[in-house]
């Protein structure tokens, strides 16, 4: 098994963090994993993406040419990365900020991640809504391990943040489960 994931959006949307959560959850499952950020003069509001590979065997190149899954958080990233998805690949898309056209060669799960997160009281949790959608779409990393990583990462002194993120994860999963 090799799962290649590209996550793309805007700086400040928690793109890198989302990648790290997936990578660490995969690590807990005993998989080989690489996480590669786009680095450079990146700024809040600028373009951001990262690449995660999860595999049963040692991973060669950490760079992803064609992805099995694409998590898209804004319109700019959709334009930039849609050609990088394999035919029949999976696209998770934040439809609050990106619009798909009708000619799809791939499976897509759409969710208004940003609106949902805002509804939960913290717009920054949009990335975790997308994570929930990914978990429900592909059973590569378990909900249990993902929750473990989020709980470990959450700041101890701000329990309300953890609560919002757990709700966001659940909302994301429901979106996909309820079709």
């Amino acid at each position: 098994m090799t799962e290649r994931i590209i996550i793309a959006g805007s700086g400040g949307q928690g793109i890198m963090l989302l990648g790290k959560i997936i990578a660490e959850a995969a690590l807990l499952q005993g998989k080989f994993v690489t996480w590669l950020p786009a680095y450079g003069p990146e700024v809040r509001g600028g373009a951001a993406h990262c690449m995660i590979i999860i595999a049963d065997d040692e991973i060669g190149s950490p760079f992803i040419d064609k992805a099995d899954s694409l998590i898209i958080m804004n319109q700019l990233s959709l334009v930039k990365f849609k050609s990088r998805l394999k035919n029949n690949g999976l696209m998770i898309i934040n439809s609050s900020l990106a619009k798909l056209d009708n000619k799809l060669k791939f499976k897509a799960a759409e969710g208004r991640c940003t609106d949902i997160a805002e509804g939960l009281g913290n717009i920054k949790a949009a990335n975790v809504v997308a994570l929930g959608m990914y978990l429900a779409s592909k059973k590569i990393i378990s909900v249990e391990n993902t929750l473990g990583v989020i709980k470990k990462m959450a700041p101890q002194d701000k329990p309300e943040l953890l609560k919002v993120n757990l709700e966001a994860l659940e909302k994301g999963r429901e979106l996909v489960k309820n079709g």
């Binding site: 790290k20 690590l27 080989f32 994993v33 996480w35 950020p37 760079f63």
Partner: peptide, 10 residues
């Protein structure tokens, strides 16, 4: 190199 320096692995 930059790629190896920036990437994360276990």
């Amino acid at each position: 190199d930059g790629l190896l320096g920036q990437m994360m692995e276990p």
